[in-house]
């Protein structure tokens, strides 16, 4: 069965881009959240195998959403996917439990590699 992924990004363009990359590589995109709060709610409901998480979003940012998801499910697999590449941000996300950190703009291969590695087991 295809692994189930929840995409989180406030930009329609990014959701469409990520969905195309993931579905073309055999993954099922089970949800598309437009902000952190939606992502947390959809995580509880959908229990996806992996979450892609933008950081800069209205309502609730991706770092706050990551922390909430990890408190609901410490085993959650969350990959940050953001334009913000500063060291502090990467360190904070990894310490909060993010499994990988992809900086936008990315090549499709970078996403496929990161997701493939995390969902291989």
């Amino acid at each position: 069965m295809a692994k189930r992924i929840l995409i989180t990004d406030d930009a329609l363009f990014m959701r469409v881009t990520l969905k195309n990359i993931l579905t073309q590589n055999g993954y099922e995109v089970v949800g598309e959240a437009q902000n952190g709060a939606e992502s947390v709610a959809m995580y509880k409901q959908l229990k996806p195998d992996l979450v892609t998480m933008d950081i800069t979003m209205p309502e609730m940012d991706g770092i706050a959403a990551l922390k909430e998801i990890k408190s609901i499910d410490p085993e959650a697999t969350v990959v940050m996917c953001t334009a913000m590449g500063q060291k502090n941000m990467v360190v904070e996300a990894i310490q909060a439990g993010a499994k990988d950190f992809i900086v936008k703009p990315f090549q499709p291969d970078r996403v496929v590699e990161a997701v493939g590695k995390l969902l291989a087991a």
Binding site: A11, F13, M14, T56, T82, A83, M84, G85, K104
Partner: peptide
Amino acid sequence: ELGNMVSG
């Protein structure tokens, strides 16, 4: 999103 990337 292009603007967001440049800002990031």
